[in-house]
């Protein structure tokens, strides 16, 4: 699998680190809302198809970015 780093271009998946679901908004810092954090941290959809994700080019420029990956085909779509 190849992943397009927005800064370095197409690279092998081995250079990257997966950083989780990017479709959900992280609750604002310091809100004190346990339910919001619970839902953010523990509840995920498990879609077959396009999925917004965080990846870090950890063996490259170390930048984090979002991308859309089809979980069934590993096809990478437009950057969300």
């Amino acid at each position: 699998m190849r992943i397009p780093c927005p800064h370095c271009g197409q690279r092998d998946v081995g250079e990257f680190r997966y950083g989780g679901d990017a479709s959900k908004a992280r609750p604002a810092h310091g809100t004190g809302d346990m339910k919001a954090w619970h839902d953010y941290y523990f509840l995920f959809d498990n879609p077959k198809g396009p999925h917004d994700e965080y990846w870090q080019h950890v063996l490259g420029c170390r930048q984090w970015f979002k991308l859309t990956r089809n979980t069934a085909t590993n096809e990478i779509g437009e950057q969300p």
């Binding site: 950083g19 990017a22 965080y54 870090q56 930048q63 984090w64």
Partner: peptide, 12 residues
């Protein structure tokens, strides 16, 4: 290190 970068580059 990755966690710091994640927070700074994507959230804060």
């Amino acid at each position: 290190m990755s966690w710091f970068e994640y927070l700074l580059q994507t959230q804060w």
